[in-house]
């Protein structure tokens, strides 16, 4: 589904990603973790070309992301993305947030888009808030809306960029619950997160990154059982003690 082949990226002369390769198969959930500044957010933004990369290749459903001939808007419309700071559009009501891209990108009718939006809001438990504005919701609610907004496009895979790290602790679980449900339904997911509880519960594989490199890429049991690299061990001990 998603294939990342030998990606390298520089900001000027500073290398942020070095020769990263991995893949996410259909129905798989892959968690990417690592210390801050390790390049994990940059890597996931390369997947839907929000960040350009200078070397390597990313293939989504046989389409090359880096190819200048690729219709990026079309490709992105099939790749859902959830951001750290939610990024709902503050000037649009919740239902209009869900409707906008359905109408403008997929060409659905307003009514059809509205029905689809309401159904998804219902699914994340926020149907009653459809006519409010993002500024009137809590962080956890906003992030659930953001997930619903991405799902409204019928994506064939979902990218999560630290979806819970801007949330107050008491709101993290409501978002994770939605994500777990999504994973159990068989959605293909690539998730940048420090929530190791989430990883243990639903991940198939865990990737550990440091200094722009993929240090470890292992099945979940293997990763939590006995990480091979010292850096991953160190990171895990810090993260797990913290929780």
């Amino acid at each position: 589904m998603i294939e990342i082949r030998n990606i390298s990226k520089w900001y000027g002369s500073f290398q942020v990603l070095t020769d990263c390769s991995t893949k996410v198969d259909k129905g798989e959930v892959v968690v990417v973790c690592g210390p801050s500044g390790s390049g994990k957010s940059t890597l996931i933004k390369c997947v839907n070309a929000l960040e350009p990369f200078q070397k390597g290749e990313i293939i989504i459903n046989r389409i090359s992301v880096g190819d200048p001939k690729t219709d990026l808007p079309k490709l992105r419309s099939h790749v859902g993305m959830v951001f750290q700071h939610f990024e709902l559009f503050p000037h649009l009501s919740i239902i209009d947030n869900l409707r906008l891209a359905q109408v403008e990108v997929l060409g659905r009718g307003r009514e059809e888009a509205g029905e689809k939006g309401l159904a998804l809001l219902d699914r994340v438990g926020l149907k009653a808030h459809a006519d409010k504005f993002p500024g009137q919701l809590s962080g956890g609610q906003q992030q659930r809306v953001a997930i619903a907004r991405a799902l409204a496009m019928d994506p064939f895979c979902m990218l999560f960029d630290e979806p819970t790290s801007a949330l107050d602790p008491e709101m993290i679980n409501e978002v994770l619950d939605v994500m777990v449900e999504l994973a159990q339904e068989g959605m293909t997911m690539m998730v940048v997160t420090h929530e190791m509880g989430f990883a243990r519960k639903v991940a198939n594989r865990v990737i550990f990154m440091d200094q722009g490199q993929i240090i470890e890429d292992a099945a979940k049991e293997e990763f939590f059982g006995a990480p091979r690299s010292e850096r991953a061990q160190h990171f895990l001990s810090k993260i797990l003690n913290h929780c």
Binding site: P73, R76, E87, F89
Partner: peptide
Amino acid sequence: NAALALGLN
């Protein structure tokens, strides 16, 4: 980024 990620041109 959010707008582009939704496929808006």
